[in-house]
């Protein structure tokens, strides 16, 4: 059972991580959360990415969301931008792809070409 007291314990650990995050250039992960994205499974993609980033203890990653960009048939969409790198957009992402994107692209810096639909 999770309690508010657990949160205070987490805070102490997160403080250190936040300090690291403020100094380092962060990787940005953006999940499309328009109606089209939501209907296609963007929530599971978002919660999977958050869980994966938390499990791996990645402190230099910011996970955020955006609305519809007009590529509704390719949803769920996930953008990954490593510091100083072009922004890569992945299409038709599910929980399994999301875990792979974190492991291969975010952690190891390898773009997964077959799922990419745009690079900018």
């Amino acid at each position: 059972m999770k309690s508010l007291e657990d949160l205070e314990r987490l805070r102490e650990r997160a403080k250190e991580a936040t300090r690291i995050r403020e100094n380092a250039a962060a990787t940005r992960i953006v999940v499309g959360m328009g109606t089209c994205g939501i209907a296609a499974g963007a929530r599971e993609v978002m919660t999977t990415i958050l869980a994966e980033v938390a499990k791996r203890g990645l402190t230099d990653v910011i996970v955020t969301q955006t609305g519809c960009v007009g590529l509704c048939d390719q949803e769920p969409l996930v953008d990954v931008q490593l510091p100083g790198q072009p922004r890569v957009t992945y299409g038709r992402v599910d929980a399994a792809r999301a875990r792979d994107i974190v492991a291969r692209h975010v952690v190891n810096g390898q773009v997964i070409g077959e799922w990419v639909i745009a690079t900018k």
Partner: peptide, 9 residues
């Protein structure tokens, strides 16, 4: 609040 470990909690 957007620290992934906090979101998980």
């Amino acid at each position: 609040l957007n620290v992934p470990a906090i979101c998980e909690w």
